[in-house]
Design a binder for these strands. Structure first.
Length: 710
DNA sequence: CATCACGCTGTTTTT
DNA sequence: CAGCGTGATG
C-alpha cells in the first residue's frame, strides 16, 4: 500500500532511498532536493512495513528538524510515527547517560553545563591554580573554553589544537593542559558534563561496554542520520556503534553545505562512510524542487569556484524566474533602507511577510536593519545569536527550579546564593559544601553554622521558597510562579531594563503550562533551548519577517531571501584577512544562504563597510565581496548600484617580515592573531617595529609609508 | 569578603 | 560599546 502511495509523490531516486530496507545507505542530497521529505517518507514506510517506531532512531541537527520530519511522517501514515526516537545527538546522549552514567563513575543525576557554566568554571580554576602571570597575557576564558571544547570534539590534544588554530598561544600549552586537567577533574568530582562530554561519554559507553552496545544496537534497529556532513568524528563513531549489530543505517548529507567545522564537524565523514561500509548503497538526489533555475545557476557557479569538488550539480524544472540581484549600497544604513524598501515592494506585490527572510553571517550584522525595520513598523522575529535562554535573568529563574530537582547542581547554587546580601563566591562555596553534607540542609539554610545575623534571614527566605517549589513539582507553572515572585526583588536591583525582562520571564511561565512535571520542563529547556522567542510562541511567526543567521536558517526556505553580507560592522576584524580555509567556509555559508530562496534572491553589500569606510582602506581586494562575485559570469546575475559609484579603491596592506599582514586604523595597529599593537619604534620610512602586548612579542613590519597613508 | 568604579580590550557561527 | 579584569574602598 505504501509503495503505491509513495510512488506518485516521489522521484525515482527518492523512492529508492525510501524503500531501501536493510543495510547501509548513503544519500547525497543537494540543497532543496527533498531531503526532509525523503526521510519523512522513509520513516512512514518503515513503520508501515511493520517496524515498531520504538526500534527507529532519527538523529538530526536540531530538535525542530526532528519533530518536523516526524510530523510529516505521521500525516502520511498515522500518529505512531511520532513515537520514533528523534532528536539531536546531544539529547540522545543525555537520555542514555541518564541511565548508564554510573558505569562511567557519574551519578545518574549529573547536571549539564552550558557554555557559560563552562566558562565560569574555567575562570574560577584559573584563579585557583594561579596560572596567570603578570607579564604574560592569558587567553580569555571564552577562548580557553573554545580550545578545550575543540580538543574534545576533535579527539585531539591541547597541543595539536594550539598548533593548528592558536599558534600565538602555543607557549602556554603546559598551563592550558594543566587547566584542562583541572577542569575535567572538577566536572567529575561535581558530577557535571558539558555538551562535549555528552558525546564523549556516550561514545565511551558504546566502546567499552559491549553489553550496552548490544542493548542499544538491538533497540535502534533502523538508524537515520540527517545533515551527516555536519557531524564530527565522535558522532560518526557513535552512529557506527549503534548500527554495529544490524548495519541498518542511513545517512543523508550534502558536502557543499558543511558549515560547522568550527565545532569539529568534518564533511569527510561522508566519504568515510563508504570506507567503513564498503557495501553501502549510494543514492544522489540532484533534482531541486525549491529554487528557480536562475537561482540555481548562480549557486552552482558560486560553489564551483571552490577548490574542493562537490558531488553534484543541481538542476530544476522551474526554468523561469528572475535573476538574482546584487545590490551594492554605500553604507550599512543605506543598505538597511534599501532592504526595507524592497520588502515593502514585495508586500505590495502580494507576497506575505512570512515568505521573506533576511539572512546574515553573524547576529550583530542585522542590528542596523532592525532599527530600520522598527522605524518602518515591519514586524520580525530573529533566530540565532545569543539565546534567549542564555540571558542572565532566565538562567537565574531556572536555577531555583534546578536546585530543587537536583541538589547537586553546583552552578545553579552559585547563582542563587550570590544574590543574597553579603554572600559572594567564597561563602557560596562554603554553603554548597555544607549542603553536600546533608541534602536536607537546603530546606533549613538558615541553620548554616557560619551564618551571621543579617544572613540567616535571607537564607531562611530562600529555603522557604525552595520548599514551596518542592511541594509543587507536579505543577511546573505554579512552581515557577513561586520562584518568580521570590526572584523579582533581585531582578529589579540587578537590571535597569527589568520590565522587559519581566515580560520574558512571564513568557517562560506560560510555556510551563504545557508540562505536568517540573523535571521534564526544565530538562527540555536545557537540552533544546528555543532559538528565538518565536519558538515559544508560534503565533509570532505567522505574520513576521524572519531574520536569521545562516546557521540557524538551515533546513528552512522562503520565497524571497535577502542576504546582507558585511565583513564587519565595527572595525575590520581579523576576519577581514581570510586564510584559504576560512574563505572556503565563508563561501559555503553564502551558498547555504542562497539556496534557501525559492523565487527571489537579493544579495546586498555595503561597499563602505568592506571593511569600514571613513578612515578606510580595503584589505586585500581578493578578500572582499568582489571575490565571491567576480568569478561568477555576469550573465548569471543582475547588478544594481546604489552606492553612487563610490566603490573604494583597495590598498595593499603591509606584510611583516614574519609574513603576517597588519593594518592600521586610527591609532591602532592590528594583527590578525595578536590583536592590537603599538608602534614601538620607527626605524625608517619603510620599517616600523610593533609591540603586541597580547603575546609580548615585537614584530618588524615593512612599508610604514603605506600604513601612514592609511 | 563583597562591592563599586574605572580602564582596557576586541569583536562568528551552535548543541 | 559592552563585558571583563583590576584595584581601591567599605
Amino acid at each position: 500500500m505504501a509503495y503505491e502511495l509513495f510512488k506518485n509523490s516521489l522521484n525515482p531516486s527518492q523512492l529508492e532511498a525510501v524503500v531501501h530496507m536493510d543495510g547501509p545507505l548513503l544519500v547525497i542530497a543537494g540543497a532543496g532536493s527533498g531531503k526532509t521529505r525523503t526521510i519523512a517518507y522513509r520513516v512512514a514506510y518503515l513503520i508501515e512495513k511493520g517496524i515498531s517506531p520504538y526500534n527507529i532512531l532519527l538523529l538530526t541537527f536540531t530538535k525542530r528538524a526532528a519533530s518536523e520530519m516526524l510530523d510529516r511522517a505521521s500525516s502520511l501514515l498515522n500518529r505512531r510515527c511520532k513515537e520514533v526516537e528523534g532528536g539531536t545527538f546531544h539529547s540522545l546522549a543525555y537520555k542514555i547517560l541518564r541511565q548508564y552514567a554510573p558505569l562511567l563513575g557519574f551519578r545518574r543525576d549529573f547536571s549539564v553545563l552550558d557554555r557559560q557554566d563552562m566558562e565560569d568554571i574555567v575562570h574560577s580554576l584559573l584563579d585557583e591554580l594561579r596560572l596567570k602571570e603578570e607579564k604574560v597575557r592569558f587567553p580569555k576564558k571564552s577562548t580557553i573554553s573554545n580550545i578545550i571544547s575543540k580538543a574534545s570534539n576533535l579527539q585531539k590534544g591541547i597541543d595539536q589544537v594550539l598548533d593548528l588554530e592558536y599558534p600565538h598561544f602555543a607557549h602556554l600549552s603546559e598551563r592550558l593542559k594543566k587547566l584542562t586537567r583541572a577542569y575535567e577533574e572538577y566536572k567529575r568530582k561535581n558530577h557535571l558534563m558539558d555538551y562535549d562530554d555528552l558525546l564523549k561519554f556516550m561514545l565511551k559507553l558504546l566502546e567499552e561496554f559491549s553489553d550496552i552496545r548490544g542493548i542499544l544496537s538491538d533497540r535502534f534497529r533502523y538508524v537515520l542520520v540527517d545533515e551527516y556532513q555536519d557531524t564530527n568524528r565522535i558522532q560518526a563513531k557513535i552512529v557506527q556503534y549503534l548500527a554495529y549489530s544490524h548495519r541498518n543505517i542511513m545517512v543523508v548529507g550534502d558536502d557543499a553545505q558543511s558549515i560547522y567545522s568550527f565545532r569539529g564537524a568534518d564533511y569527510r565523514n561522508m566519504a568515510d562512510f563508504i570506507r567503513v561500509f564498503p557495501d553501502a548503497k549510494i543514492i544522489k538526489l540532484e533534482q531541486n524542487y525549491r529554487s528557480t533555475q536562475p537561482i540555481l545557476n548562480f549557486t552552482n557557479a558560486l560553489i564551483n569556484q571552490s577548490k574542493e569538488s562537490f558531488t553534484k550539480c543541481l538542476y530544476t524544472k522551474r526554468s523561469n524566474g528572475r535573476f538574482p540581484k546584487l545590490i551594492e549600497t554605500h553604507t550599512e544604513a543605506e543598505q538597511a533602507m534599501a532592504v526595507c524598501r524592497d520588502i515593502q515592494q514585495y508586500l505590495s506585490e502580494g507576497i506575505p511577510l512570512r515568505e521573506m527572510a533576511v539572512l546574515f553571517r553573524a547576529a550583530y550584522h542585522s542590528f542596523e536593519l532592525e532599527v530600520e525595520l522598527a522605524k518602518e513598523g515591519i514586524p520580525y522575529v530573529k533566530y540565532g545569536g545569543f539565546k534567549f535562554l542564555e540571558s542572565a535573568h532566565i538562567k537565574d529563574l531556572l536555577s531555583y527550579l534546578r536546585v530543587v530537582i537536583n541538589v547537586n547542581d553546583i552552578m545553579s547554587w552559585r547563582r542563587i546564593l550570590n544574590f543574597l546580601k553579603q554572600i559572594g563566591p567564597v561563602k557560596s562555596q562554603k554553603i554548597i559544601d555544607w549542603i553536600k553534607m546533608d541534602e536536607q540542609n537546603i530546606y533549613q539554610l538558615d541553620r548554616w553554622p557560619e551564618a551571621k545575623k543579617g544572613e540567616s534571614g535571607h537564607l531562611k527566605e530562600l529555603s522557604n521558597t525552595l520548599k514551596k517549589i518542592r511541594e509543587n513539582m507536579g505543577n511546573p507553572q505554579k512552581a515557577i510562579k513561586i520562584a518568580f515572585s521570590y526572584y523579582m526583588q533581585f531582578l529589579e536591583q540587578r537590571f535597569d531594563d527589568y520590565p522587559k525582562r519581566k515580560k520574558e520571564l512571564e513568557q517562560i511561565i506560560s510555556m510551563a503550562s504545557r508540562y505536568n512535571n517540573l523535571k521534564s520542563f526544565v530538562e527540555d529547556l536545557i537540552l533544546s533551548p528555543p532559538s528565538s522567542t518565536a519558538d515559544m510562541d508560534p503565533d509570532l511567526r505567522k505574520e513576521s519577517l524572519v531574520l536569521s543567521t545562516v546557521h540557524s536558517a538551515k533546513g528552512l526556505e522562503w520565497s524571497v531571501v535577502f542576504i546582507i553580507w558585511a565583513m564587519d560592522g565595527y572595525f575590520p576584524s581579523t576576519k577581514a584577512l581570510l586564510n584559504e580555509q576560512e574563505y572556503e567556509e565563508e563561501r559555503r555559508l553564502m551558498y547555504v544562504a542562497c539556496t534557501r530562496a525559492r523565487d527571489e534572491l537579493r544579495i546586498y553589500f555595503p561597499s563602505d563597510e568592506w571593511p569600514r569606510a571613513s578612515n578606510s582602506f580595503s584589505i586585500h581586494s581578493g578578500d572582499t565581496m568582489s571575490s565571491f562575485i567576480s568569478p561568477i559570469p555576469t550573465e548569471l546575475y543582475e547588478y544594481i548600484d546604489l552606492s553612487g559609484g563610490k566603490i573604494p579603491v583597495s590598498h595593499k596592506i603591509t606584510v611583516g617580515i614574519d609574513g603576517s599582514k597588519i593594518w592600521k586604523i586610527g591609532d591602532r595597529v592590528m594583527h590578525p592573531a595578536f590583536g592590537r599593537g603599538v608602534i614601538s619604534k620607527v626605524i625608517d620610512e619603510d620599517r616600523i617595529e610593533v609591540f603586541f602586548k597580547s603575546v609580548g612579542v615585537k614584530l618588524l613590519h615593512l612599508s610604514y609609508t603605506q600604513l601612514q597613508k592609511i
